[in-house]
Write a protein that binds this DNA or RNA. Structure first.
Lengths: 340, 340
DNA sequence: CTGTTAGCGCGTTCAC
DNA sequence: GTGAACGCGCTAACAG
């Protein structure tokens, strides 16, 4: 590997000049610029970012740690982050919690050891990830995503789950559906789920959709969706809309409905939550709520950048509004395809 | 941030001693070890990996670049890699091609700039990624995954697609299915797809399953699966098994079959390929071929490690055997659940 | 504008 | 067994 010294010798200039040409930090005589460029290309020179970072005290690198890199949702987030960071000339250093708080903590520290300029964290658990996240926040600027560890002085950008639920409810009202039931996982599963449940209750009470049936709580998933429909069948009083807390449960509901011989969306409409891979491929395709992953990513990066420039007044807590994706599980093909 | 010098002062020893204690590179008097440990803990000292890497000329870091980090398959691979690297005390530096060869090339070089000890690459395109991958291979040891760029001197670990197809065909033979049809994407889409097609042809000709219908080629996806079934319906000669080139197409086939009123698996059985997220949630769940991602990851890392220790004789080309996951799209519930 | 010099924080000689 | 001194490759400060 060629070093800057090699380039300097070949171009017949000093080390400092090479550095200046390469980083554009100061004006250099055009002729010398050319000579340096030439020499650099000839040698296939590449800057050593380790040395550079050591000297500059920052690395144009931000750390990102997610609970489970294999999860589609997190993978998408990482990709979104990676994309805009790349465009800004920064590099993403990924850490993976592998679903384990201790592993997560170690991943965090390892990133610190590599001198990241900032950190974007999706905490594994709002309780148990607390100590590590707070400790890290003392070392470098941190912005939490999706979930916070209850530290008011650490930035947080998340999705407004309640607004998403209102979108669903309004959509149902537009369709004149009056007897809805909410099928979801038990609200202890995640903060998001309980927010959606609360918003459903609230919306059902005060919104345009009335006549609401008590929420059905189970362990979210395919099986629970099917079982919920089974229970409804026994009760013999079918609702005209089923709102699900997540897409997977909605798939189960769809399957149960098919077994029961009901037509979607004619007899009954179904909605999911969290448009990530599944909703599109179900049959019929699922109307669902899409989280603005790209905006979340950009907001987090923006915030990090602002903080680095010293605009770090008080910590922010942003909630970004999701959008409704209307598909055939609520609207028959003819009137299909609108997204709002 | 505390530095080694701070630790040395607090412990009343020299810098060198601290270094030795922390890296365990040489024996140090027990008492001093204790003092250093204590001082280090008190200060919350963390080694600066930039400086360390600069001095040692290696970083215990390996670069991983994938075509599209948001793809579930790649995300899973990254997670598998990340897991075993973590266990070995190494760190993963991720690069994302974002589906673009130029971006991929830049990601590769950026990792080189960070002094990775080795590189694991899933090339975006076996043709167009060639130059970059070959150039990188001159800088650092690289092992390609899944797809090679046709350089015989660069390691490659991939999945034996043909073996996977044989698994499917044998399974069908066990079920006494005699009229199968293969529905897949056009074989120009990827090398993997064409390998599967070839293996299907081969297996159909020489294997235990005879009476084979000409493969149906389209653009893989939900729509093509449905359409393929539509064409079959017109022909009025139903096969007793439909083998699909990928899971998504299989989902479409399942949907088409339902519309046509056929029972799966009684009237007809269906198989997918690449068990990643979709197969489990379809109805009925899909029998499919699972790629051994964990083994692929471990093999790649193992190879990198071997090369670093100087065992890098000739480049290897490994093909790992996938496994068949039997679900209800080929075997009715009663006899379900076996995986082999 | 350009060159010389001094470290960034570490690991590693070489003397003791 | 321990410490002092050097240098990894680079940028920032200071002269010229």
């Amino acid at each position: 590997m060629a070093t800057m010294r090699d380039v300097a010798e070949r171009a017949g200039v000093s080390l400092a000049t090479v550095s200046r040409v390469l980083s554009g930090s100061r004006r250099v005589q055009p002729e010398l610029v050319e000579r340096v460029r030439q020499a650099s290309d000839d040698l296939g020179y590449r800057r050593n970012l380790l040395a550079r970072g050591l000297r500059r005290r920052h690395t144009d690198t931000i750390g990102v740690v997610v609970p489970q890199a294999g999860d589609l949702r997190h993978a998408r987030l990482v990709q979104a982050l990676s994309r805009t960071l790349h465009d800004r000339g920064e590099t993403l250093l990924m850490g993976d919690g592998h679903g384990n708080v201790e592993v997560e903590a170690e991943a965090l520290w390892r990133l610190i050891d590599r001198s990241v300029d900032g950190m974007i964290i999706v905490p594994l658990d709002s309780e148990r990830s607390g100590p590590a996240v707070r400790a890290i926040a003392e070392q470098v600027h941190v912005v939490q995503v999706e979930r916070g560890v209850g530290a008011a002085d650490i930035d947080l950008v998340a999705v407004d789950e309640a607004a998403g639920m209102r979108l669903v409810l309004d959509h149902l009202a537009d369709l004149d559906r009056e007897r809805t039931v909410f099928v979801t996982g038990s609200h202890v599963e995640s903060e998001g789920a309980s927010e959606r449940l609360a918003a459903y209750r609230e919306g059902a009470a005060t919104g345009r959709t009335r006549a609401v049936v008590t929420p059905m709580l189970g362990i979210s998933g395919l099986a629970w969706g099917r079982e919920a429909v089974g229970r409804l069948a026994i009760s013999r009083r079918w609702p005209d809309a089923i709102v699900c807390g997540d897409d997977l449960t909605a798939l189960g509901v769809l399957d149960g409905l098919r077994a029961a011989g009901l037509q979607v969306p004619d007899d009954i409409v179904v909605t999911g939550f969290d448009d990530v891979g599944l909703a599109e491929v179900s049959s019929p395709p699922l109307t669902t709520v899409r989280r603005p992953l790209g905006q979340v990513a950009d907001a987090a990066i923006e915030r990090l950048d602002g903080a680095r420039r010293g605009e770090s007044d008080a910590a922010v807590g942003w909630r970004l509004p999701p959008s409704l994706v209307v598909r055939e599980s609520t609207v028959a093909p003819a009137a299909e395809g609108s997204t709002r």
